[in-house]
Nucleic acid binder design. Sequence first.
DNA 1: AAAAACAGGGCAATCGATTGCAAAACAAAA
DNA 2: TTTTGTTTTGCAATCGATTGCCCTGTTTTT
Lengths: 349, 349
Amino acid sequence: MQRQKRTTIYDIALKLNLAASSVSRALSNSNKVNAATKALVLKTAAEMNYQHNAMASNLRKGNNPTIGVVVPRINQNFFSNIIAGIEEVTYKKGYNLIICQSNELHAREVDCVNALVNQHVSCIIISIAAETGPYEHLQQVLDHQIRLIQFDRVVEELDTFKVINNNEKASYEAVTHLIEQGYRRIALLEGPQQLDIFRHRKEGYLAALRKHNIPVLEELMCENAWTKELGAEATAQLLGLENPPDAIFASTSDFSALGVLEVATNKGIQIPKDLGICGYSNEPFTELTSPSITTIDQYSISMGKTIANLYFQEMEGLEFNVEPKIVSIKPKVIVRKSTQRIPGVNTTA
Amino acid sequence: MQRQKRTTIYDIALKLNLAASSVSRALSNSNKVNAATKALVLKTAAEMNYQHNAMASNLRKGNNPTIGVVVPRINQNFFSNIIAGIEEVTYKKGYNLIICQSNELHAREVDCVNALVNQHVSCIIISIAAETGPYEHLQQVLDHQIRLIQFDRVVEELDTFKVINNNEKASYEAVTHLIEQGYRRIALLEGPQQLDIFRHRKEGYLAALRKHNIPVLEELMCENAWTKELGAEATAQLLGLENPPDAIFASTSDFSALGVLEVATNKGIQIPKDLGICGYSNEPFTELTSPSITTIDQYSISMGKTIANLYFQEMEGLEFNVEPKIVSIKPKVIVRKSTQRIPGVNTTA
DNA sequence: AAAAACAGGGCAATCGATTGCAAAACAAAA
DNA sequence: TTTTGTTTTGCAATCGATTGCCCTGTTTTT
């Protein structure tokens, strides 16, 4: 494969009998070059089909206006919204976005992070995989003076910028809403407890129960029910109890809640009358099920923007050793039919 | 901001009293360097926290193992699945993925493409924006010897590799299914006709009607009904006709079909008995509505893989001027309740 | 008219890794 | 011991753009 050489500033310089430095200055619109020359260079560059070589430029300038993003799955509503939000901001700043997915695997996450460090990106934005492991790779990022922002699922011990949802608070409010609707035996579907977000959601659940003097029952808490299938399984089990729950809070995801809904519906259980269901994430489909599912919106697109802005406002070009900020976003409970037993009463917006 | 210098191969060379070239060879596992030295270099590199500089390397080697992807919207199910599929393949090949979204705007698409050309990416994968315009920017890509793969929404005139869905065929089959179910006055919700995909879908619709000797009625074809809102509007209008349709094929998207469903349901129309509804894309929610919506699956994740494989199998490292291939994928009609009037009869799978 | 300020442009080093070629070191063959 | 062959290593150019410094005219100031 013999690709013909691209036009470089030297080619332009040669043609115009100029020095490459002048061409470079003309192209970067420096004021150290005559307006006429500038125009000539620009014109010639266009004619010769010149394209700026970002690799060479970045190498010389020692910085790469690129941000790397590592998420568990690109095609998950929450994450693709986050990415869209980030892109919206980085695009305006002329930054590129390199995207990787860990597929929830720790080894792959490490791989992705290393590739990004090799690229000398300016910043790495990450939400860690469910399969956690040592976090040396993240420490490495910092050691290499690359900015690091963790979001949603974070390694708490690691002292970095973070953008998180106040999962505990959201969870607390969701459960409070259930209680206000008269539910008393509220089951919890938990996610993998090695992830902080799921621990926090559980804490919110427990806090709400305690606050209202409702006993916490071990039998009503199901570990690792974070897919539709696992949610369905857990539900089948819960509904088979001698004293089944009157509400299920699928704190893991709306998919899990969907599993709950299907099993319950198949059993002929009336929702919300006999069983309340609350999910998490405000996936688009929650509005469309029958009944529609109460859930928690995480403002994912705007969260993505917040993350990117954090970089540009607090980190770009500034000292490396500033005190990391932690931004906490309060998610919002979206009340829908799956939990509305008492028509008039609504939870706090 | 004074960031301390990163370790380079020169630093390692200095420390070990070697030449940089040897260090480079050791790190790239060349067989032109002694095993002992190799081990020593590797060890020292690790100790000194060395990280390979991809920018310098790519510059020297004159290639950038990176693929750029431009899509209208990152957070649209179809596209995020495509991206996930592409990533799956490129990750294994050690390629990076730069993602941009055009937001359906032509100017922004041009911007994104230019940025990718500047980066000297190896390949650009694109699905064009709804707001079309001149396609010089794509011609430019080819002029710069960068591989170009168009997918889904393509500029037909442009002679490049393409991965497309056989929209006409899919559409034909969907309408045929409607006819088999006894629907006779089938309305069509069209998308922007400057996009080839929507033209093809319309052709499939027309072909199916003709094939079954069903008259084509202008009043049953609605232009530009490709969002939920527009779909709803169009439906309201259609159902107000003296002779309303008995089925609506929302060839634009499932969102549009959702609009149809809502309006029809609100009017108390029985689905599928009095009105059949068919969407396009197999969005996850189509399974969840009541009734569930018949739609067309585009195998998006596997399509993403196909696209990436096309690059690696047909283009990477090969001659630039090979005859572009066009891969056509046949989407599949997913029959659900919104069109099943006759329980037994099913369409071809 | 001499001095100072400034505009415009060129020279050459630099960013960090790679690689063709040459040199050195060592082993094997004559 | 000399010659030939094979490893191993070093030298220096290269990829393409940027930038500090210097040089040459021209304009402004005194």
